[in-house]
């Protein structure tokens, strides 16, 4: 083996074990610096938003990032009428309920389509998968008419019902259940568990990383959803955070420091959750993205 070969295979070993440290050559420093600058640019809009939310109106249009007289007055003002809190609670309830339902049913359907053999399985799989091609925007009109007809306008149920199951999640969970060996399930069957128990207490625990990845995706999707809640709600007390924020910002017109405060209030909770569960979330997103 030549020196070069030894070096390369050692590097490969370290890459795999995670102990690899590339040499500190000048190229590497340039690369890092550029990446760092890029990262700063990426978060700049968030920084400016937070900075503006802590400025007094007269300082608002100056370029300094750190406010000369930082204040929480804007937050007090925005929160004072209780609407933001209400919208926040609405969004939370809706996102959690939808996530629980979608994860439960997507896993159940994915599991059934993966582990059961019965006539019509393939057709159902294709049928569910085909709904991926139907854009939400096409369905909003009929959903709206349904809601009108059944009195679902301005109700939590009306906001939630379209998202109670997802084709994407079903497909994803089916992929993940492929990795669960049939022997495990067979063993449980011999132990006398019924099919629901097998799914719930044997198969599900084996795919928890996938479940949490799916949960993150669905939660984020519902937390930021805009067009359907915008259409189905007109009663301010039922708005979700994004819809409320739109209304609020239009009302405020020029008071940008208040608009930025509203935007910050809508953003900060997810940022905090992210900072706490960072590794988990990134791994989950990568996993869902690669399998899906």
């Amino acid at each position: 083996m030549s020196d070069a070969e030894i070096k390369v295979s050692a590097e490969g070993l370290m890459r795999q074990t995670g102990t690899y440290k590339p040499p500190r050559d000048p190229m590497q420093i340039v690369r890092w610096t550029l990446l760092f600058m890029g990262a700063v640019v990426m978060v700049m809009p968030l920084v400016y938003m937070l900075s503006a939310s802590m400025k007094y109106p007269h300082e608002m249009f100056e370029m300094n990032i750190i406010p000369r007289e930082p204040t929480f007055e804007n937050y007090a003002l925005v929160l004072s009428d209780g609407r933001f809190l209400q919208w926040f609670v609405n969004s939370l309830i809706i996102a959690i309920a939808t996530t629980v339902s979608a994860v439960f049913f997507d896993a159940l359907v994915g599991y059934t389509l993966c582990k059961f053999d019965f006539r019509g399985r393939y057709i159902i799989f294709i049928a569910i998968l085909s709904t991926l091609m139907i854009p939400t925007e096409m369905l909003v009109l009929p959903w709206y008419m349904m809601s009108l007809h059944f009195g679902w306008l301005d109700t939590y149920w009306g906001i939630m019902f379209p998202g109670l199951m997802t084709a994407f999640g079903t497909f994803l969970m089916k992929q993940f259940f492929e990795t669960v060996p049939d022997d495990f399930l067979e063993a449980a069957r011999i132990d006398g568990l019924n099919e629901f128990q097998i799914w719930w207490s044997v198969a599900m625990p084996l795919v928890t990383p996938a479940l949490s990845a799916l949960a993150i995706f669905i939660f984020l999707g519902n937390w930021t959803a805009f067009i359907w809640p915008l259409i189905v709600t007109t009663d301010q007390s039922l708005y979700t955070l994004p819809v409320g924020l739109t209304t609020f910002s239009v009302e405020q017109s020029v008071q940008w420091e208040l608009i930025m405060t509203g935007a910050a209030l809508a953003t900060i909770p997810t940022l905090i959750v992210f900072l706490v569960f960072q590794r988990y979330i990134i791994r989950g997103v990568a996993m869902a993205g690669l399998k899906g």
């Binding site: 009108l148 007809h149 009195g151 306008l153 007109t234 009663d235």
Partner: peptide, 13 residues
Amino acid sequence: TFPLADYRTRLAA
């Protein structure tokens, strides 16, 4: 009373 944006849909319902 109803929110302004809601008028037509309330009637339609």
